[in-house]
């Protein structure tokens, strides 16, 4: 086996490992973001429930280390929740996007009790989605980790 073949095989295996790792990391990120959005909704709920804080005040006061790193919090403070969700700073699952779209369309349009009910419902849906994503990742984790490198090895064996 030539040095070039060895090098090429190594690159192929490393790339496949990276693909698998990225797939797992991406799923983990979605779970983490869904969790943080649920925290945001609970934050909104408690502020409305106790203080009737206006939305711009709520958004200015919210801080989350993880969402902050993505730039979401800055856009939230400056332009509001709708703009922050549409900014592309987060990689959300389709279901999380749908839940948040509904939430944003109704937030601020009702009285206190309605807003609290909306927040409770949304937080519950986001928690369910977080659990679903976790279960899905657990089922597929081994596949993401082992299938790409096995595929790479298969290609290497075929080429050799």
């Amino acid at each position: 086996m030539t040095a070039a073949a060895v090098a090429g095989s190594a690159v192929l295996v490393m790339t496949s490992l990276a693909v698998g790792h990225t797939a797992v990391a991406s799923r983990n990120a979605r779970i983490r973001q869904t969790h943080s959005l649920a925290e945001l909704v609970r934050f909104i709920r408690s502020n409305i429930s106790f203080f009737l804080t206006p939305l711009d005040g709520l958004f200015a006061a919210f801080d989350d280390e993880y969402l902050g790193k993505t730039g979401f919090c800055e856009i939230l403070r400056r332009d509001g929740l709708d703009a922050a969700l549409k900014s592309g700073s987060l990689d959300l699952s389709p279901e999380t996007e749908k839940i948040m779209d509904r939430f944003v369309s109704k937030l601020g349009k009702g009285l206190r009790d309605e807003e609290i009910s909306l927040c409770d419902y949304t937080a519950e849906r986001l928690s369910e989605e977080e659990r679903r994503l976790c279960d899905e990742l657990e089922r597929c984790r081994d596949m993401y980790r082992f299938v790409p490198p096995l595929g790479a090895l298969f290609v290497i064996v075929c080429l050799l």
């Binding site: 409305i48 009737l52 804080t53 206006p54 939305l55 711009d56 601020g108 349009k109 009702g110 009285l111 206190r112 309605e114 807003e115």
Partner: peptide, 13 residues
Amino acid sequence: LDKLCGGSMYTHG
């Protein structure tokens, strides 16, 4: 109404 309430109708209940 939404503009008058500043997008936060619940604060004006």
